[in-house]
Write a protein that binds this DNA or RNA. Structure first.
Length: 235
DNA sequence: AGGTACCTCGCTCCTCTGGG
DNA sequence: CCCAGAGGAGCGAGGTACCT
């Protein structure tokens, strides 16, 4: 006696036909007939009245049908619950991010993520860009978020988004009131820059050189937050 | 390789239904 | 009421997959 046999029996009773019940279970009519005969032999009870058309369950057959239906519904419910558990997203994802992303963007993304996957946990660490790469390479982080990532064989780089590079100045700076600037306007200006070994700094230096602009680097920081603070206090 | 379970196929038998 | 056709169930033979 298997669940398949019980389902077959329920379908035969429900559809009032061996043929239709068999078709519903993708077996031949003969196989359905034999399965139910075996079921009756195991129970030592006639479950169906075959002398009538359409066929009818006997009194015992009706009782057995109700019991089988409850059993099968319970099984389907349990299977659905197991399936839901299987599909549940859980565990911990370790994210290493540069300060600007970690302090602003990540918290914005984490709220909907945690709402959608309440059984998951996010461990966020804000690091220097080089350390973000190291964390991923050393399996200390599952993923890293940074700007200007260098593609290597050991790293898969996926673009997250693009955003414009902007120039910022203290409100009292002579360029702050200008609606637009050209690169030449920056010549000789005091510049708070990223550390010279960062990819973003190299990209900025390349862009300035392309336009023949020389600036006076007065401070270097490894993250945009500190740069913004330095500009803010007019350092 | 042999045993077992389960299946399909082909056939027979039974019941129902509609027409004469 | 009788008969023929259609639909459906049961039975036996044989095939296949799986296990020991």
């Amino acid at each position: 006696m298997t669940l398949d046999t019980l389902k077959l029996y329920c379908d035969v009773v429900r559809l009032r036909s061996f043929s239709r019940g068999a078709a519903a279970n993708k077996v031949s009519q003969s196989a359905a007939s034999q399965s139910i005969q075996q079921l009756e032999a195991e129970l030592d009870l006639p479950l169906l009245d075959r002398s009538r058309r359409p066929l009818q369950p006997t009194e015992e057959g009706r009782t057995f049908f109700e019991a089988c239906r409850t059993l099968l519904q319970g099984f389907e419910k349990a299977r659905a619950e197991l399936s839901a558990v299987k599909q549940r997203v859980e565990g911990t994802v370790r994210v290493a991010a540069i300060y600007s992303v970690g302090l602003h963007d990540m918290s914005r993304h984490m709220q909907p993520f945690m709402a959608a996957y309440p059984h998951a946990r996010v461990l966020l660490e804000c690091l220097h860009p080089h350390k973000v790469v190291d964390a991923v390479l050393n399996d200390e982080a599952d993923l890293g978020v940074l700007s200007y990532p260098a593609a290597t064989r050991a790293l898969e780089v996926l673009p997250l988004r693009s955003e414009p590079m902007v120039l910022v100045a203290h409100p009292t700076h002579r360029l702050a009131r200008r609606r637009s600037l050209v690169a030449a306007d920056l010549t000789g200006e005091k510049f708070v820059a990223f550390d010279h070994d960062l990819a973003i700094r190299k990209a900025i230096d390349r862009a300035l050189k392309q336009h023949g602009v020389k600036v006076e680097v007065v401070m270097e920081f490894d993250n945009v937050e500190t740069i913004k603070q330095a500009i803010g206090i007019n350092a």
